[in-house]
Design a protein around this nucleic acid. Structure first.
Length: 129
DNA sequence: CTTTTGACAGCGT
DNA sequence: CACGCTGCCAAAA
């Protein structure tokens, strides 16, 4: 499956994956940032969603607010950050420098992602009727 | 309905 | 900087 936009409503988990795919190399977002950008759920929801991330997902660009990844992924994550020249401070990502700051065009993509997510909830509710 | 469980966040020590 | 504790949110048991 391609990371391109889908015409159909999005599931929360899918929305998180899509958002992760929007983050450019060298930049990162905390799980909490992801939840905030989508306007739904909290950091833990975003984390849960990343747990089932597809192979194409740049999971190393979504990490904890303190700039680290969960133990099991720390090693691989570090390699990826080196390759992408992600601003680091020791073994952790320097969030103040690396945090993704979307430009106008990117905000639009994020907005459409949010919209698709809302549609997802609507269709889900519609499904219950 | 209550409890447990997460790729979490923030604050105090 | 490292822990430990509490708060959070939604889904699953």
């Amino acid at each position: 499956m391609s990371p391109e936009s889908k015409p159909s409503p999005l599931d929360y988990v899918e929305a998180v994956h899509q958002l992760a795919a929007l983050v450019p190399p060298g930049a990162v977002l905390s799980y909490g940032d992801v939840a905030e950008l989508l306007g739904v759920g909290g950091a833990r929801q975003a984390g849960k969603a990343m747990g089932s991330s597809p192979a194409w997902t740049p999971w190393w660009r979504i990490l904890r607010a303190d700039g680290t990844l969960t133990a099991a992924l720390a090693e691989r994550g570090n390699e990826a950050w080196s390759l992408e020249n992600t601003p680091r401070r020791g073994q952790r990502v320097d969030m103040t420098q690396a945090r993704w700051k979307p430009i106008d065009a990117e905000w639009e993509q994020i907005d459409s992602l949010k919209a698709a997510l809302q549609l997802g909830y609507l269709s889900e509710a519609n499904d219950q009727l």
